[in-house]
């Protein structure tokens, strides 16, 4: 890429971009919404089924899937979007794939991703938990 364009893109990158979640995690995404002249924060909670691109890339996104009244809803969030306030991890998930597209074919209880625990991390291929996540699991 042209170095000047890279410099320009760097300026648009968020310094406090959301992070700390992995594929399969159940997250709450806090999105800033502007209605007329009012501004409020909406929460979209679901499972992270896709993380696209590196986070230092301006165009990187993550996809969150949830079931709303029996219908699957997926929302794509750009990491660097100014409208994303924060992302909270509700429940860590154990995933052996980088993209959890198979969840789209599942209904009901089968859509649940197994919870990621430290012991399972050793036997499975799930990455070891960071300190923060370990706390989240125990609490």
């Amino acid at each position: 890429m042209n170095s000047i364009i890279a410099e320009v893109e760097k300026k648009f990158q968020k310094k406090d971009k959301p992070g700390g979640f992995q594929i399969g995690d159940n997250v709450d995404v806090h999105v800033r919404i502007i209605e007329g002249d009012k501004e409020r924060v909406q929460i979209f909670s679901g499972t992270v089924i896709k993380i696209k691109g590196r986070q230092n890339n301006l165009r990187s996104t993550f996809t969150v899937r949830r079931i709303v009244s029996g219908e699957g809803v997926e929302r794509v969030f750009p990491y660097h979007s100014p409208s994303i306030v924060k992302v909270e991890v509700r429940r860590t998930g154990k995933a052996r794939r980088a993209k959890l597209y198979f969840l789209r074919d599942r209904v009901g209880k089968a859509t649940k991703v197994k919870e990621r625990r430290e012991e399972e991390g050793v036997e499975g291929q799930a990455p070891a938990l960071s300190k923060k996540e370990a706390e989240a699991v125990t609490t």
Binding site: N2, I5, V8, E9, R32, P78
Partner: peptide, 21 residues
């Protein structure tokens, strides 16, 4: 014309932009 890329508006929307020197 340097090239094109994307940027965010304040309201979080993508806009296609052209970088000009």
């Amino acid at each position: 014309k340097i090239g094109m890329t994307q940027a965010y508006r304040e309201d979080g929307k993508w806009v296609p932009i052209t970088v000009l020197e």
